[in-house]
Design a protein around this nucleic acid. Structure first.
Length: 244
DNA sequence: GCGACAG
DNA sequence: ATCTTGTCGC
């Protein structure tokens, strides 16, 4: 797929923050409510600056089979292209590269962006939705990785974080689907969402062209058996074992 | 001033 | 993120 050209690469934290402040004005908080081709993105690190970026595109048309009694058999994937939840792998790409920015909370996107963009450009299909490993709106300047990728591609994007980052929130009820708002300076920037009963919640925030309601509904739909959405689990697996 | 701080 | 041992559960 085609991705907008990367802006001039920042050489300092100040420049990186200025880019975020500028691009944040392009974020849209409404968009489609249904998606068929969903891409999961993740990056794996080797040593200090070697990275492997993975993108896995799943077709989500088939209905998710009932969890029933078979939670143990398909955890490692299974028959050709089939993934848990009735999802099917349409395409996958891995790109090895170097991290071109130090890790700084709030500027995390600049570490993974170049490799992820290259991986997206190698895709022959264009996804309807990007599910990113990290935050979107729930960010100190309201422009996390999911927003950045959304704006560069023009695609709807969701950020799914595994740990608390910004704002405050109450603990959601233990049931799958339960959630509480994440508040930052008096406004809601995301939700702590329980994707499995009695399992730690994930932190969902809008990236681009999607509402918070739709983002959470998608994360739930894409997480039939595990804490994390299948596209991200698949991308994570590919980034670390896929290409060696 | 001190601690916290996506991956 | 990654570095690790041990422990628990299916």
């Amino acid at each position: 797929m085609r991705v907008n050209q990367l802006h001039p690469w920042p050489t300092s934290a100040e420049e990186a923050e200025a880019i975020q402040e500028r691009l944040r004005l392009h974020v849209e908080l409404t968009g489609p409510t249904e998606f068929t081709l969903v891409a999961g993105l993740d990056v794996h690190y080797h040593g200090d600056d070697d990275v492997a970026a993975a993108v896995v595109v799943l077709s989500t048309t088939a209905p998710a089979p009932a969890p029933a009694s078979s939670v143990t058999d398909d955890r490692a994937g299974s028959v050709a292209g089939r993934v848990a939840g009735g999802l099917v792998v349409v395409e996958q790409v891995v790109v090895r590269g170097k991290a071109r920015f130090p890790y700084v909370p709030g500027l995390f996107a600049f570490r993974e962006l170049p490799a992820l963009v290259e991986a997206l450009e190698r895709l022959t299909v264009t996804p309807d939705l990007l599910v990113c490993d990290g935050y979107g709106l729930a960010h100190p300047r309201g422009f996390g990785l999911a927003c950045h990728l959304g704006v560069l591609t023009g695609l709807p994007a969701i950020g799914v974080g595994k740990t608390h980052f910004v704002g405050t929130h109450d603990t959601p009820a233990p049931a799958r689907g339960a959630w509480t708002p994440i508040d930052l300076n008096g406004s809601t920037v995301g939700r702590a969402l329980r994707t499995q009963q009695d399992v730690k919640p994930v932190y969902v925030s809008q990236g681009h062209r999607i509402t918070l309601d739709t983002a959470c509904a998608e994360v739930l739909r894409l997480s039939p058996y595990h804490r994390l959405p299948e596209p991200i689990r698949k991308a994570d697996h590919l980034a670390r074992h896929g290409d060696l």
